[in-house]
């Protein structure tokens, strides 16, 4: 039962991710991405991460609705009524992302993963709360400062009255949180750590393709988010199959969710400022903002 659910949801997650870059309508693309996230959220529910699963569903619906606002605002022809292609270096991107997937998959299957230590606590969410208020306090406080900075920076960038709107600083996208899902063999069609990591790698690769090939900044952000979706799955998998006794995996997922939201806020602010200054939202045309 669990395996059927896992594979079904995995298919939805990856298909949603691919659909993002295939469909012509920006509204459909965003909701395809949302479908991918919802499938990931339910995957987390399957491995007892009830809080994180519900949280992913909750946050991603809100974030994708905000995403769609910006997609529709800045993308030409948002309903896809006049099909057009806005990609660059499509083949290269395809090759790179396929290569990355193969590398990750090989790594995943060849790495000797550690045995499971401990078992899930009785109340997983309580455990997470304990960790956040105790040893992981610093994480929360750092994120608090990051949120404050994001609020101020995005308001400054995006509002018309903002002080810097003529001198756009183009430093998009925080680095992805440490992602090392590559090590280890095991087999069988059961749901294991490897299958979780393979799903994560697939989402990551699809997202990478998008980030490399799309011309429009908002579409690039969609790709980045798909990559973060892979991180969510990987984090959940690590927690459940490697160290359910500690809250580290859960905290990783929380951090990924937060980083993604902050990345979106900053990204939208940058796009707004860029569009205001240049009337475009395309990466190729923003090249002269470097340096």
């Amino acid at each position: 039962m669990q395996a059927v659910a896992f594979w079904g949801l995995a298919a939805v997650a990856v298909a949603g991710g691919i659909a993002v870059f295939v469909v012509g309508s920006m509204a459909r693309a965003t909701f395809a991405l949302l479908a991918s996230f919802l499938a990931a959220g339910v995957e987390l529910l399957l491995i007892d991460l009830h809080y994180l699963g519900a949280l992913v569903i909750l946050m991603m619906i809100m974030e994708m609705l905000i995403m769609v606002v910006f997609m529709v605002m800045y993308m030409m022809n948002p309903a896809g009524l006049m099909p057009m292609v806005m990609v660059h270096n499509n083949r290269g991107a395809l090759a790179i992302s396929a290569g990355v997937f193969v590398a990750l998959a090989t790594g995943i299957l060849l790495t000797p993963w550690p045995q499971r230590r401990g078992s899930p606590p009785r109340d997983v969410t309580f455990d997470l709360g304990q960790a956040l208020m105790g040893p992981k306090m610093l994480v929360m406080m750092v994120i608090g400062v990051a949120i404050l900075a994001t609020m101020i920076a995005s308001v400054v960038l995006a509002t018309h009255r903002g002080r810097y709107d003529r001198h756009v600083r183009f430093d998009r996208a925080e680095p992805e949180p440490d992602l090392d899902p590559a090590r280890g063999p095991r087999r069988r069609c059961r749901v294991t750590l490897e299958t979780f990591l393979l799903l994560a790698a697939a989402l990551f690769a699809v997202g990478l393709y998008g980030a490399l090939s799309q011309q429009s900044i908002v579409m690039v952000m969609m790709g980045l988010e798909l990559m973060v979706n892979g991180v969510l799955i990987a984090g959940g998998g690590f927690w459940y199959y490697v160290a359910p006794g500690t809250a580290d995996g859960q905290v990783l997922v929380l951090v990924a969710i937060t980083v993604m939201a902050l990345e979106m806020a900053m990204g939208f602010a940058v796009v707004t400022a860029l569009f205001r200054a240049r009337d475009v939202d395309v990466t190729d045309d923003a090249g002269d903002l470097k340096g």
């Binding site: 809080y51 949280l55 909750l58 946050m59 809100m62 974030e63 905000i66 606002v69 910006f70 605002m73 109340d123 969410t125 309580f126 997470l128 709360g129 304990q130 956040l132 208020m133 929360m140 994120i143 608090g144 949120i147 994001t150 609020m151 995005s154 308001v155 995006a158 509002t159 929380l254 969710i257 937060t258 939201a261 902050l262 979106m264 806020a265 939208f268 602010a269 707004t272």
Partner: peptide, 24 residues
């Protein structure tokens, strides 16, 4: 209201921490 969306995106991240906090 796009500026509100950005503030919202950042601010609602506090919920991520607040739900588990309420338990402990």
């Amino acid at each position: 209201w796009y500026a509100v969306t950005m503030v919202f995106l950042a601010f609602d991240m506090e919920m991520v921490f607040m739900y588990p906090w309420a338990l402990v």
